[in-house]
Design a protein around this nucleic acid. Sequence first.
RNA 1: GCUGCUAUAGCUCAGUCGGUAGAGCACGUCAUUGGUAAUGACGAGGUCAUCGGUCCGAAUCCGAUUAGCAGCUCCA
Length: 645
Amino acid sequence: MFKVSFFEKTLEFEAPLSVFDAAKAAELVTRAHIAAEVGGTVVGMTHLLAGDCEVKLLTFTDAAGKHVFDHTAAHILAQAVKRLYPATKLTIGPAVESGFYYDFDSDIPFTPDVLAALEGEMKKIVKENLLIERFELPREEARALMEEKGEPYKMQLIDELPADAVISFYRQGEFVDLCAGPHLFSTAAVKAIKLTQCTGAYWKGDQKNKMLQRVYGAAFPSKEELKAHLEALEEARKRDHNKIGRELEYFTTVEEIGQGLPILLPKGSRVIQTLQRWIEDEEQKRGYLLTKTPLMAKRELFKISGHWDHYRDGMFIMGDPDDYSKECFALRPMTCPFQYQVFLNKKRSYRELPMRLGETSTLFRNEDSGEMHGLIRVRQFTISEGHLVLRPEQLEEEFRGCLELAKYVLDTVGMLENCTFRFSQWDPARAGIKYEGTAEQWEEAQRVMGNILDNLGVQYTIGIDEAAFYGPKLDIQYKNVFGKEDTIVTIQIDMLLAEKFGMEYVDSDGQMKTPYIIHRTSLGCYERTLAYLIELYAGALPTWMAPEQVRILPIGDEHIDYAYDVKRRLAAKGVRVEVDDRNETIGKKIRTTQLEKVPYMLVIGDNEMNAGTVAVRSRKEGDKGAVTVDEFLSDLLVEIEEKRR
RNA sequence: GCUGCUAUAGCUCAGUCGGUAGAGCACGUCAUUGGUAAUGACGAGGUCAUCGGUCCGAAUCCGAUUAGCAGCUCCA
């Protein structure tokens, strides 16, 4: 006898039975139940229960249930590929957030036509209602089976499994795949499938390995859900900064200037200027000293910093890097070695620390040609850079200050809700290759940083092998409208570079000490942040940062002079305002294209003139009726000052 | 850098079998209309991304380059 608890009710059984049968006995199972969680492990409905356990039934709406569903969809894809292109070699095919993918090694390119054919074959497989069975084999037999099926990648995967691993397979019809599972009961539940794209991906994610063909897809229990998913994707595309950022004239690119070198048009420039002035002022309030350092330096500087050894491929170098009879310059990829010179300018006392240095810093990185993307990944960008030179006991307090500033800044622009924190650590296996310094130094820096993060109550994930070459980082990750993640802000502890540059201060006991350094940004890089703001607000930026805050619309020729008078009054207070007099007498037929991107519109006509007012139309609140210009202006200035969203 | 796709007017796109280029919107002029997504007429705009090849002839076929997109790898 054993007990199976379904939370709602508990039953007792004598003989082992499947989750499905147990749930059926409990009268809990429906068609929607596609998997289960038994004692915290996700299993299929055919999983045998033989002892006391707690069972939670899963549907597609549970993340774990969707995962099982998508994984089965990936197997159906692989089966379809093997039917239509038997020579294809299978590799791996997991479920991912956006659905699933499967990587294939095939000589035939999977063009859109091929994907359509595969989709058709997948539908057949679903109709065939193939039962999905799990079986386990000892290592040698597992290997032999994969050899017989002609699957070298699967053989390699088997060889790499730990000695005590259970080697399981799943069979559906004629198709067998090495897989840990779990899976659906049958192929029939996967009612709606869309193969979205085919791209390249390296085997095991290693650039040195063969490039495979990755087919992405999405699958749902019903056609309606698939349709809704595809429509949501379409909506996200409408917010794509790379599309609307160009349409709304924030930026453009020019073939002759080159990849990753966007032109910021007047609107984009104005937004960035607004952000930059705000950040510089905010940092000044918080005790930062402003610096302005060169955009380039001789190779010798980067040799000291270590960039020459660790970052040379990512730098733009002018001159022959190997000819030491001549000068060789490089554009700066980072600000650190330049800003350190500010500290090194004279002998420093402990009384001067913490020294907080801030700079709006333009950097140059020679990214690989396939990496560039709109304003998000570029070769020249400007960052709200800063370095804090500290006594050891100031580390925690200053780190907290940096984190508070970053959170305040991200919260103000509205991005904090979509942020997560990542504690980026080194990988000891790459010591001396990617990372400088000793294991002791790294362990110490990471211990200190871990303590600080825990003391501050920061919820973070750990990213192994995500550190900088000189130290661990706290990366603030931003998730965009497509669900893609990028680092927006980073705060790093550096125990190495101060020593390399000979940075020292005289401590209270008269001894020379090496300071700690925090590298940090507050708003990250302006171009990338602008891109995310455009997406976040679908181009309709909050008033305080909008490139055009007010548009004045005179109705009739006789009001044009007054419209310009109102414009002068607003502009004198720093308001970004335009008059639209292009259709001065058109009246009814005023073009309103893109007007929804401007926070306020002032309509000037006879009614308003008689009352000495303007008719205010707010993007957010609609028609606000007639108010005097002074009232409108004072409310507007308060809204801008408060940086309301 | 890698795999796949793409490039025709400022934008969105037609252009069949290889025979010297087309629409709508936008833009300009004139006329017309007094309140929030589209008045009418006329006009201007393209070395079909660039370079090379095949051909009597290339927007169209082939190759290279450049740029853009998706993904991989890398990264703020």
